[in-house]
Amino acid sequence: MMNEDIELKDPVLPLGRPTLGSAGETGDWRTYRPKFIEENCIKCYKCWLSCPEGTIRVDAHGEYPYIDYIYCKGCGICVHVCPGRKKQKALEMIPE
């Protein structure tokens, strides 16, 4: 009585997988970029802590931070929170 030859398809479940750059290369959004000035960095990592995007990268504690420009949206938080050395910030915003 039943169609034995019908192909029974597997269900497509609504599952998304963790992906870097899920919204594309969001560095394209930027009009200004943060520039890192190593000599002013005291490695307090406040920029790392407050970066909403996770684009301030630190490979290991004790090393200098660097910026992933592929995804950095250029919000400027890192520059704003940077205490710098002797009031000279280790980050500044420059036009793209």
């Binding site: 398809k9 269900p11 497509v12 479940l13 609504p14 599952l15 998304g16 997988r17 963790p18």
Partner: peptide, 20 residues
């Protein structure tokens, strides 16, 4: 880890509805 039922575009919804 996966996210279940996250924001889905038209193609994704179409695929899921066809699967249903």
């Amino acid at each position: 880890p996966f996210a279940h039922g996250s924001l889905t575009d038209s193609e994704g919804i179409w695929e899921q509805r066809m699967s249903l």
